[in-house]
Amino acid sequence: MSKPLSTWAALLAFLTLQPGAAALAHEGHEHAEPAAATAAAPVKPVTGQPLSEAPLRLPDGSLFVPKSVQRRMGAQGLRTAPVASGNFPRVLSLPGQVIADPGSGGRVQTLQAGRLAAGPEGLAVLGQRVKKGQILAWLEPAAGALEKGAGQAALAELTAQESLLASRVARLEQLEGSVPAKDIEQARIELRAFRQKKAAVAGSLGREALRAPVDGVIGAANGVAGQVVDAREVVFEVFDPARLAVQAQAPDPAALAAGVEGGSLDLGQGVGVELAFVGMGRSLQAQSLPVLFRVQPQPDMPQLVLGQSVQVLARVRQSRAAPVLAIPASALVRDGDNQARVWVHGAPERFEARSVRVEPLDGTRVAVIQGLQAGEQVVRDGAVDLNRVR
């Protein structure tokens, strides 16, 4: 029995409204492949640049650096510091050299020509810690056969005379009470003086001890066992590594007329070491006035070595006419023309390069004469990485 016409019409309408109805086809009919989905357009930030995990240089020269990239730059991510304003002292940059503190160092020199020999504990070597009076080496005097023979003959004669004087003192002591006491005391004095004379002659014939003048570390060793050295030759230098000094040279003594109140070492990369002013000379050396500073020990201080050339920033007692701006020295970088500039953090992911004119302030900061304003944030850690973005 056939279904009513209205039932077939209702069924056809139901199938037409189903989502998969368009995919139905009779067998033997070919249909085209469904079209590929169109890729969504990239989302762009307000700067007009596409979102990316890499820093981008914008048309105005500034940089767009995502937060994720900022955390990977520098030693511990990008770090900023505010531009400070204050009455900082005037600084004069002077060339200098690291030396041993005059009160804690010394040299070991020979008084006569001779041959070096190892001491009781061996020949002192570089870096060895020694005590004051410790024998570092022996010096065997250089003398000819005739000189040695004459010296040994004189020593033998002195030995014989010493025996005679000792016997005389012994006889007088046995007659004590019957012989005046002054005669006995005089004989004893003569014997002591003669023994000292004999020891001096014997010492000139024997080897000489080269002793450490102070407690410290061997900073220079200029001899080996068996080496022949001349008189007044420096064999060892001893210094205390915890007590160092810096001697600076001031080509213009008039610049220090107001006086020096302190200083610091500029070791580069924002690293500085504090110095205490000791004094300055009153006569020129190599057309410069010598100025002496003492290194102030501090935690994590870079190692300094004797003879190292350094840049000294001497603080003079002369106030500036107006407050100046100061930024960390590590914030300074160089552009393609080798001009100083810094990166200013203007927005969360925006950095702007700013050319500046600076003057030395101390080892860790520089004074900004032009290019910045107080309160602006400059990149102090990671500025070099920003400068490499192209």
Rank of each mutant, 00 (worst) to 15 (best):
Gly86Asp: 11
Leu265Arg: 01
Lys44Thr: 15
Asp252Ile: 00
Ala75Thr: 14
Ser167Tyr: 09
Leu332Asp: 09
Pro120Tyr: 05
Pro213Ala: 06
Phe64Ser: 07
Pro251Leu: 01
Ser52Trp: 03
Ala383Pro: 00
Leu136Arg: 00
Ser104Gly: 14
Ala9Ile: 11
Val214His: 07
Pro213Met: 06
Ile189Cys: 07
Ala187Pro: 01
Val310Asn: 08
Arg294Trp: 01
Ala9Trp: 06
Gln285His: 05
Ala286Arg: 12
Leu56Trp: 11
Asp266Met: 04
Gln377Thr: 12
Leu175Lys: 10
Ser330Pro: 00
Asp252Val: 02
Lys198Gly: 05
Ser283Pro: 09
Lys148His: 06
Met73Pro: 10
Ile218Glu: 08
Ala212Ser: 11
Val278Thr: 13
Pro241Gln: 03
Leu292Gly: 03
Pro102Thr: 00
Leu205Gly: 02
Thr110Lys: 09
Val368Ala: 07
Arg341Glu: 08
Ala383Gln: 01
Leu56Met: 13
Glu274Cys: 04
Gln303Leu: 08
Ala145His: 10
Val260Ala: 06
Val310Ala: 04
Gly77Thr: 07
Val310Pro: 09
Asp252Glu: 09
Pro328Gln: 11
Asn222His: 09
Ala245Ser: 10
Arg90Phe: 06
Arg317Asp: 15
Pro82Phe: 01
Glu176Ile: 08
Gly259Ile: 12
Lys3Trp: 13
Pro213Leu: 03
Asp300Ile: 06
Val46Lys: 14
Leu111Tyr: 10
Phe277Met: 05
Ala212Ile: 11
Arg129Glu: 03
Ala37Gln: 13
Ser52Tyr: 13
Arg315Asn: 05
Gly363Tyr: 03
Val91Arg: 15
Ala374Cys: 11
Gly177Cys: 04
Lys131Val: 04
Gly279His: 10
Phe14Gln: 09
Thr38Ala: 14
Gly375Leu: 11
Val333Phe: 00
Gln70Arg: 07
Asn338Ser: 12
Leu304Phe: 06
Gln70Ala: 05
Phe64Thr: 12
Val260Trp: 02
Gly307Pro: 06
Trp343Val: 04
Leu191Arg: 15
Val379Ile: 09
Gln311His: 08
Ser52Asn: 10
Val65Leu: 14
Gly96Val: 04
Asn222Thr: 03
Gln227Leu: 07
Leu284Asn: 04
Ala250Val: 05
Ala154Trp: 05
Val125Ser: 09
Ser167Val: 08
Pro348His: 07
Ala245Glu: 01
Glu208Cys: 12
Glu33Arg: 13
Leu15Cys: 07
Pro360Lys: 15
Val65Phe: 12
Glu359Met: 15
Arg195Gln: 11
Val91Thr: 15
Gly106Ile: 01
